[in-house]
Design a protein around this nucleic acid. Sequence first.
DNA 1: CTGTATAGATCTACACTGTAGAGCATGCCA
DNA 2: TGGCATGCTCTACAGTGTAGATCTATACAG
Lengths: 212, 212
Amino acid sequence: MAAAIDLADKRGLDAVSMRAVADRVGVTPMALYPHVGSKAALLDGMVTAILRELKPPPPTEATWQNRLVYLARAGRAMSRRRPWVAMLMFSRPSIEPDAARVTDAIYQALLDAGVPDAEVPRLERLVSTFVLGYGASESAGRFASGGPDPRGWRGQVPGGPLAAHERLTPRLTSRHDWDQEFEADLADLQLLIEAKTRPPRASAGSEPAPPS
Amino acid sequence: MAAAIDLADKRGLDAVSMRAVADRVGVTPMALYPHVGSKAALLDGMVTAILRELKPPPPTEATWQNRLVYLARAGRAMSRRRPWVAMLMFSRPSIEPDAARVTDAIYQALLDAGVPDAEVPRLERLVSTFVLGYGASESAGRFASGGPDPRGWRGQVPGGPLAAHERLTPRLTSRHDWDQEFEADLADLQLLIEAKTRPPRASAGSEPAPPS
DNA sequence: CTGTATAGATCTACACTGTAGAGCATGCCA
DNA sequence: TGGCATGCTCTACAGTGTAGATCTATACAG
């Protein structure tokens, strides 16, 4: 497992092949199979190992905000250190024991915040999905801005000009600080959580039907 | 492109190989290269095509809430119809023209909601990252619950029992409605956006929401 | 009508992938 | 000493993306 992780860190996830891992362990590819089962299981084991080395949740005495922010930052840090984990984690059930450990910490923070029990699991998924999505976007290239050259959206678009883009141009051309954005997002999510500590109310309004 | 998408729809993304696509087009694998450049470019082209077939944003007369919800639902619907797109989209810069079209619609909705210009791009990414993450989690298996059998987290965990899980057991064992959860998440994000329509404050005080 | 240029498809080949199946060596227990 | 299980190795197969050279059919100049 360690060999596989090291390989992914140094030469990318694509370089993690049975043969490469076996070589690094000093063994024949087929020797791995009794131990890891399959390539998919190997990738699974890699995230499990990473998840396990995620530092224990912060002490209970800290405020729930601090604990939540700590966990979120830890998640993002993990995904920056290993740009390959985020994508893998999307394909792993979040129920497995190691993931459940950190899930539980988030549950706890939300409970301490005063979120009603019925809302806790959903909000946990909301938060963790966002953190994971942010990490994946960063490391897989979705957030790649290409610098201050807005050639992408300025290219002619069939449906006419992009009004909002035009208006926001100054905001879009300046280079971006992704750390800062993440922190701002966390603050907003915190806000959202605080809003849920008050009794829930029904939403209003009629919405257009979604496309099938 | 259509052949590749059809293949992915019917036999999964892994079945999309140069040879398979070429076969379906009635041509030799190498004949594709002058047209698509590479396998990576082919996958890129697939999402581009999907993005392009995403219905045009709803009419401007609708409320911003309706437009936002419409777009979010459309995104999720897309990721349910083609379970392979969400993961691919994480590795595609969101700047490209086709993506920019829907990005612009979200910008517009946020602007109409009264979100200050400086916050709009970030909030757009917050929302779209979540929607994409939700879709990816659903279709790649992260949200796989395994039904009402909580064997996963109930398995012995080295660091002691999972207190919050224990407390939330009744909420966790019941089967889940992911449509409903998505809607609830959207409502929450809407709430968050409304909170940002008030002038941005430097500190993080928590004020109850005044009536609109 | 002929000759040639050119765009596009093809064929072959290479290095590589995950893994099934058979064979082989070593250590433990009777 | 024999039997046996465990763990490793070897070979092989069907598949991958794609570089390089070759072939073919079409369009156009004379």
